[in-house]
Design a protein around this nucleic acid. Structure first.
Length: 210
DNA sequence: GTTCTAGAAC
DNA sequence: GTTCTAGAAC
């Protein structure tokens, strides 16, 4: 008889209190790759009490780093105003590390301009801020999705994320709009020329290297 | 997130 | 015929 059964809310209430770790993807799943990388000293570029910086395993530009919190935070949806100091720190550290690497690299070439930000809908669990040089010259840059994820509004500037968090106490992402942005036609981020295929765009990007 | 590959596009 | 993209992957 139905009335003798606990309601679904009652069942939920009887469960152990939510533990953030229980919501992490299984360690062997690809989407947990960054949690593994966090502990990999070989990939590490910088680490302090709050965050760790690594080189992206599949860089989409000549310099492509990831800044991650040492403590597990799934993504921007889990962020609230208590995380403001962390996000500000991650941006500061990202800039410092990028400028250090760029200064060293500029002895041989020039690709000093960076952007700092988050993908609106990341594939990998564990919050990560991209630090990416704006040459976009890399063998790992292959698809339209790659391109649009870094050059359209799908790329959320870290400073804007911080401002939004400060203003609203959380980060809102328009999922439907973001998915559509990934299908945008290929357009050069520097001169707005349009291209029909990735190989053509990639060849064009070389002309912006001076 | 990447790899692989069928078949669309050229 | 070759290049290129796009969707499945248990």
């Amino acid at each position: 008889m139905a009335s003798s059964l606990p309601s679904s809310t009652a069942i939920k209430r009887n469960l152990p209190s939510e533990n953030l770790n229980e919501n992490q993807p299984k360690r062997n799943h690809w989407s947990a790759g960054l949690s593994t990388a966090l502990d990999d000293e070989g990939a590490r570029v910088h680490k302090d009490e709050l965050c760790t910086v690594i080189k992206d395993k599949y860089p989409k530009a000549r310099i492509h780093l990831l800044v991650m919190p040492n403590e597990y935070i799934a993504n921007l949806k889990s962020i609230n105003n208590t995380h403001l100091p962390l996000l500000k720190h991650m941006l500061k550290v990202g800039k410092e590390v990028a400028e250090k690497i760029a200064a060293k690299a500029n002895a041989r070439g020039s690709f000093a301009h960076f952007r700092y930000g988050y993908h609106a809908i990341p594939s990998m669990s564990l919050l990560h801020m991209h630090v990416i040089s704006q040459d976009f010259i890399s063998d790992s840059l292959k698809t339209k999705k790659h391109w649009n994820s870094f050059t359209s509004d799908y790329f959320l500037d870290a400073s804007q994320v911080i401002d939004d968090l400060q203003a609203n106490g959380s980060i809102h992402v328009d999922t439907t709009r973001m998915h559509k942005l990934l299908d945008n036609e290929l357009q050069c981020h520097r001169c707005s020329n349009k291209f029909t295929t990735m190989p053509k765009l990639k060849q064009h990007l070389l002309t912006h290297t001076s």
